[in-house]
């Protein structure tokens, strides 16, 4: 298990974060340095002021009200997975530092219960959305339109989420132990705590990290670059 964890939860983390950061920067740089279309591609009605345009862009990107109107179910799942992923991402902030004010307020046990509920909800919501998306891509025009990239990303996401959920719902290791591991990565003195190595949950962490590594490595070369591109593309809408 130690070798596996060294690969996925130590070196894989360094590699994937490097590829992700460099890849996304390169992609953004490429976009920024490609000349803009001389033709204005905006559609009407458009806001009259610069601030109005930015506000509309944020609304279109973060809420996508038009998409909600045309396919509410798809929108609901898409919105839910993004919000849940953001929640999960914030929750993983505990690996950097314990949310001390929350612990002070809720107490040690209260914090763990809160994390179990919020993390658990996010985990289930994301799983449901990914299952919905996989199901949606198995029939009709959605299947015809899909390419292997779509399934690869969904498979990786499914792996990340299901293993995360496994650690959340089945595993018995708490945040403090994972924090030890993650902190050791941050100071470049990687060490996997004995509690993780001695528990079967170590395998779950290894798998969770393996999927996450692959997901992050592929991210800049996939359609997921919409995480950055959607903002500027939506800004063009009111040009």
């Amino acid at each position: 298990m130690e070798t596996f964890l060294n690969i996925s939860a130590v070196y894989g983390v360094y590699l994937s974060i490097s590829v992700f950061v460099i890849g996304m920067s390169w992609r953004t740089y490429q976009w920024a340095t490609t000349p803009k279309s001389p033709v204005r591609l905006g559609m009407f009605p458009k806001p009259k002021t610069g601030a109005g345009r930015v506000l509309k862009m944020l609304k279109d990107t973060l809420i996508a009200p038009q998409s909600a109107r045309i396919e509410p179910l798809m929108w609901a799942f898409a919105f839910a997975i993004h919000v849940a992923a953001l929640g999960a991402f914030i929750g993983h902030g505990r690996l950097l530092h314990e949310f001390t004010p929350l612990v002070t307020w809720l107490g040690e046990d209260g914090m763990n219960t809160f994390a179990a509920w919020s993390g658990g909800t996010a985990g289930i919501v994301m799983l449901a959305a990914v299952v919905f998306w996989i199901a949606r891509r198995t029939f009709g025009p959605f299947k015809q339109l899909s390419v292997p990239e779509d399934y690869l990303l969904l498979a990786l996401l499914f792996g990340v989420i299901i293993m995360g959920d496994h650690m959340r719902f089945v595993g018995t290791i708490h945040a403090a132990t994972y924090r030890e591991w993650f902190q050791s990565l941050l100071v470049f003195k990687p060490e996997i705590p004995a509690e993780i190595l001695g528990s079967s949950t170590g395998w779950s962490l290894g798998a969770h990290m393996l999927f996450t590594d692959l997901f992050l490595i592929y991210f800049p070369f996939s359609k997921l670059v919409h995480a950055v591109g959607a903002f500027s593309a939506n800004l063009v809408r009111s040009e």
Partner: peptide
């Protein structure tokens, strides 16, 4: 014909097919 908008459109489409019923 490549320009920033075209490049982004080609890079970011998620093939979600929300455009289907539009």
């Amino acid at each position: 014909k490549m320009n920033r908008q075209l490049k982004q459109y080609l890079d970011i489409c998620a093939r979600c097919a929300i455009c289907k019923d539009a």
